[in-house]
Write a protein that binds this DNA or RNA. Structure first.
Lengths: 251, 251
DNA sequence: CGCTTCTACGTACGCTGTACCTAGAGAAGG
DNA sequence: CCTTCTCTAGGTACAGCGTACGTAGAAGCG
């Protein structure tokens, strides 16, 4: 068979070959971007890297919010044409995956656990919260699409190492990590919405007090009365984190 | 001036009146939809209600996913023109608020707590999970925009009633509720993405095993080896829920 | 040198949220 | 009663989105 290159199955030289001319992505290209090689070695050298693309997108998201991150905006920030971006990122979702994993690269993880599980987990939670606070758009994105790039895997590996002394099995420690990450992420997300909604906070308070006084929600009214001052966010975080770690470590 | 209708501004014969003619919403209309009256009593009777609008939107989301919920689609489902919907819902966000609160109406809460805090919280979590499972799009929406409509307030009130015997203060019980809801919601969300990604699950497994075998993530590899069978989702839920309740109730 | 495969990017389509405007329905005030 | 004013219904239009598709040219391989 002299056919120099059958792109997919049945090169059959004498008949119809659906999808041969212009389809380098038959349908077997992996959906997961981490399974696609960044570069195949053939053709001209790409002008950009996944890292630079992610950095550009993160820059836009940090300064103008996640909604401002569009394919056109990112491409323009890179000095590229809009559609050129699709050579690197088959769908916008994958751009978000790149952004997510790029933030996971910000962890400065110690080479190995200290042996004090509580302390290590507390440090890890604070590192995570710091990253979330640095990128206000990040919590929403993490909650919406849990993605596992290489850097996220490094984080996972570290968590597993930290919790190894507990004696829990692999599955149990994965569940623990989900609980742990979920808490930190939701806390950061709450902080974000609270900060963004500072303008409407007055409205909200009015609405809630009105609801409390309506008599329809007696326990809410009582809780309002019982609750003290607004409480420092960091204290609340540490207090609840302590409970979460306790829940994880309790056999 | 024979002009039969001054469309905007300054026909007023006596003085300047900023924003009278064509601005029924000067800028003091509340952003919170729950603070806007559903009906003012003046003019023709509206053809739709917030409930029917929410029901229509939920119907679309249940069958075609949240992305299919557009203003046009919902209006069409109601048999209305697209822009008519904006008389009921000033922005799309508010449509989502209506959907959220409509799902909170699905709770069948007991008139008052049984006195067994653990049992009540377990029941509540199961009710919540059932609602989440009934509306696959719901977890993502709850995580993205925590909104507090009348039905959500009823839920909150019930939670506060259930946790009253713990002796914790109002603020502490609110924090506990956030932790509790957050866990259930994230669990449901995880189930959803796992179900939706069943098609790519093979890819993911391949990626993870490849990562585990690469040697870069030794603890991940070991956890893979240590973990047993995939585990039943309901069992995992109950097990972790137990831990969360424990975290809440531990003084 | 071809051949092939890659990159770059312009054009175009269908869809989105929603600003704005025009009619007309119906309650409130004289 | 009639007038007036506010409300609802809905069409048109616009900017922006993700991305399918096609073309032109550069770089590696045989």
């Amino acid at each position: 068979m002299p056919s120099s290159k059958p792109p997919t199955g049945s090169d059959n030289p004498g008949s119809d070959d659906p999808g041969r001319p212009g389809k380098p992505v038959p349908p077997d290209a992996p959906e997961l971007i981490w399974l696609r090689p960044e570069r195949t070695g053939r053709g001209p050298r790409p002008a950009h890297s996944r890292d630079s693309i992610a950095a550009a997108a993160i820059g836009i998201a940090d300064t103008e919010g996640l909604d401002a991150v569009s394919m056109r905006r990112v491409a323009a920030a890179l000095g590229a044409g809009t559609m050129s971006l699709y050579n690197y990122v088959p769908k916008k979702e994958h751009l978000l995956d790149l952004m997510l994993d790029a933030t996971a690269a910000e962890y400065r993880l110690p080479p190995e656990p200290s042996g004090d599980v509580r302390a290590d987990l507390t440090d890890l939670a604070h590192a995570q919260l710091a990253i979330f606070r640095r990128h206000p758009w990040l919590p929403a994105l993490v909650l919406a699409r849990p993605s596992i790039g290489p850097n996220a895997l490094r984080y996972t590996d570290h968590f597993l190492a930290v919790t190894a002394p507990t004696g829990l099995g692999g599955g149990a420690r994965m569940e623990a990590m989900a609980l742990f990450n979920g808490f930190v992420c939701q806390f950061a997300q709450y902080e974000q919405t609270a900060a963004a909604g500072a303008k409407w906070q007055a409205e909200l308070v009015g609405y809630l007090t009105q609801a409390a006084m309506s008599g329809d929600y007696p326990n809410l009214a009582q809780a309002f009365a019982t609750s003290g001052s607004p409480a420092d966010p960091d204290q609340t975080f540490d207090r609840t984190l302590h409970r979460v770690i306790l829940a994880i470590l309790t056999p």
